[in-house]
Design a protein around this nucleic acid. Structure first.
Length: 640
DNA sequence: TTAACCACTTAGCATATAAACT
DNA sequence: AGTTTATATGCTAAGTGGTTAA
């Protein structure tokens, strides 16, 4: 027992139901000899060795002794896991945190002499700071942004701010500025980058890996873990989404004097770049960020945080899905309750109940209030009268509410929803005597809603409904669409369809890919070619059949062969056609967001196991890293 | 009681890389 | 082998929801 040395004597849990132990090679160093050991115990728990991780999967623990260590994954046989006991009522996120600080954007490299800027047709040399900001604009010359008035005005105002007195006195109008040479220069640069030889590309890749190795990891409670965004955002022009009033404003260069560092007191404090100082070094174990700075455009704090594969993030993700599962258990009660509230005498309660119905039925976002200086978008609680219209009858359906508004990221939400009569009448009532710009739910906001939800169930907030609905839908669809005797390819198609149903529910859209039309054309051409091949093959089969009828054995074999060929062609055609419809249906739907943020991975993993689909077909490497907690633990019992 | 602040999750787009095709 | 197309990854904006300060 005491010969197992978990993390130099200390207990450590890299994944919350797995325990990492270190075994010295003085005991054994092969899996075989491990298997010969009696069932080991670790800190009072009976443990079983699941598999040898050699090299370790995603972390390693350093040791001061000279003995070689192996890292093992083990499962605890006790029902109560150690980490649960440790976590109770504890706000601390870590006990030890050490890292190298963030990586700053490279310094500005002035343009070559022959790349010129012209104002009003005349060449003009800009001082480096002015030139740098000009290049930000020049890079975007063929982007839609530069056709927008707000973008141009904001850019020009901020640009003039960085100019010297004399530059400012000359450059008075953006329309007289000619950035074309700069633009062409950057295009050429990117072409050059693309045309680089293999060796050059490899060299650059290696350099990046060096940086990643040095700055991309931290040590948190004995484990080396990946950092999500260790590079500080470079300066540029702010690209807000939708009609953002601040689009085009200059996002300034961040320097160490802007940056807060968060780490352990007893860790090696990261060194600021030569000649600089950090704004502050603090040691706050109640937060998970490693560094932060305040961005100048919106005044928001930006953070350097851990990668989703980290224990800290994984645990949080797991908790999220656990709450969604809890909601699944009490959803009937909650639904009954809000239906009852539709009849309430209090307007406040009715509004709350109708809004909750929308959140539940349509998976709408909560809808916090927003400031004036942001794009005008809404969620459920912030819906305005102008965003919905009521139809007693529409397209053969009764009591239809039509939603038409811009949601997060200014993505349009349009949905014609038949609702229950009582809901319809309530909405009618909420709209009475209001102007289009008035709030639909004037007695409601997200705080009120979430307070109520928390009373219904501990940990319940509006966003949990989205998670619950998404995961629940995935499971329903998977059950409906999967056949056990389908091929793996067909099963994956079923999975993607289920995924798509969720993406539609959550309104996860994307711009139609630029190459969509062309790739569609190519696919159609392939289908036509395949059809021609089929008719050709049909003819041949016919001939062969005739020959085979009275022919020799050899001719019969030929006939069989031709028949098989035809079948194969038909299969290929079917596959192409499926691919075509799939691509067409998918062109403006983004599957990634729901897969990454809304679908309980344990459902997917259980489905893979049940239908014998390799996990790699569903999740790529990044996703497998993120969902490792689920891949390790999931079994059929994790169906929702 | 409200607004500001803070920390963290969720989001789509751009670009890099890998895979498929010719 | 080079080119095109698909997928993965990086980036950072924009949400949610809790806490704190006025």
């Amino acid at each position: 027992m005491n010969r197992l040395l978990p993390n130099n004597g200390k207990f450590c849990c890299p994944r919350w139901n797995k325990i990492c132990v270190i075994l010295t090679n003085t005991m054994c160093n092969t899996q075989h000899s491990l298997m010969l050991k009696r069932s080991p115990v670790c800190d009072g728990f009976k443990i079983q060795i699941v598999r040898l991780c050699y090299p370790p999967i995603s972390y390693h623990v350093e040791s001061r002794s000279r003995t070689i260590h192996q890292t093992l994954l083990v499962t605890v046989h006790s029902k109560k896991f150690r980490w649960e006991e440790e976590k109770k009522n504890d706000r601390t996120k870590w006990n030890f945190l050490e890292h190298k600080g963030p990586v700053f954007a490279p310094d500005y490299e002035p343009l070559p002499q022959d790349v010129k800027f012209y104002y009003n047709g005349k060449e003009m040399k800009l001082k480096p700071e002015t030139e740098e900001v000009a290049t930000f604009y020049a890079r975007m010359l063929d982007h839609d942004y530069t056709t927008k008035k707000i973008f141009n005005t904001n850019f020009f105002t901020d640009w003039r701010d960085v100019m010297t007195e004399s530059e400012r006195s000359k450059i008075m109008e953006l329309s007289k500025c000619n950035f074309k040479e700069m633009h062409a220069y950057f295009l050429q640069k990117s072409e050059e980058r693309k045309a680089m030889s293999k060796e050059e590309k490899k060299k650059i890749k290696e350099q990046n890996e060096e940086i990643q190795k040095e700055y991309g990891f931290c040590t948190i409670d004995g484990h080396k873990e990946k950092i999500g965004n260790f590079k500080i955002e470079p300066p540029g022009l702010f690209r807000g989404r939708g009609e953002h009033p601040k689009m085009g404003k200059l996002k300034k260069r961040v320097i160490p004097e802007d940056v807060l560092i968060n780490c352990s007191k007893d860790s090696v404090i990261p060194k600021p770049p030569p000649g600089h100082k950090w704004r502050e070094v603090r040691h706050d174990p109640n937060v998970t960020w490693l560094a932060s700075w305040t961005e100048n455009v919106q005044g928001q704090v930006k953070y350097v945080m851990l990668n989703p594969s980290s224990k800290l993030k994984g645990e949080k993700d797991w908790q999220k899905y656990e709450i969604a599962r809890k909601l699944a258990k009490s959803i009937d009660k909650i639904r009954a309750e809000y239906r009852e509230d539709w009849k309430s005498k209090e307007m406040r309660i009715r509004q709350r109940a109708v809004a909750l119905y929308f959140i539940d039925k349509l998976a709408l976002r909560a809808g916090n209030e927003k400031d004036e200086d942001q794009a005008d978008t809404v969620g459920c609680c912030s819906l305005r009268v102008e965003h919905i219209s009521l139809h007693e009858h529409k397209d053969g359906k009764d009591f239809v509410v039509v939603f038409d508004f811009l949601g997060k990221d200014s993505i349009r939400y349009y949905n014609e929803v038949p609702v229950e009569k009582r809901v319809f009448k309530n909405v009618q009532l909420f709209m009475e005597n209001k102007s289009p710009g008035d709030d639909l739910f004037d007695r409601l906001n997200t705080t009120v809603m979430n307070k109520h939800l928390n009373e219904l169930m501990e940990g319940l907030t509006a966003k949990v409904f989205r998670t619950y609905n998404a995961s629940w839908t995935l499971q329903q669809q998977l059950e409906k669409l999967t056949n056990a005797d389908d091929t793996v390819a067909e099963k994956i198609l079923a999975y993607n369809r289920a995924n798509r149903a969720v993406a539609i529910l959550c309104n996860h859209q994307r711009a139609v890919p630029k190459t969509h039309a062309k790739s569609m054309e190519n696919l159609k051409a392939k289908i036509v070619a395949k059809k021609e091949a089929i008719s050709e093959a049909e003819m041949q089969v016919k001939d062969a059949k005739r020959d085979a009828k009275h022919g020799s054995v050899k001719e019969k074999v030929v006939y069989e062969k031709k028949k098989k060929m035809l079948d194969r062609l038909r299969e290929q055609l079917a596959r192409l056609e499926v691919q075509a419809t799939d691509r067409e249906e998918n062109k403006e739907i983004a599957l990634g967001t729901s897969k990454l943020n809304y679908l309980d991975p344990r459902i997917s993993v259980a489905w893979c196991k049940k239908y014998d689909v390799p996990i790699e077909k569903i999740y790529n490497k990044t996703q497998r890293d993120k969902f490792r907690w689920a891949i390790d633990m999931a079994g059929p019992e994790y169906i929702f």
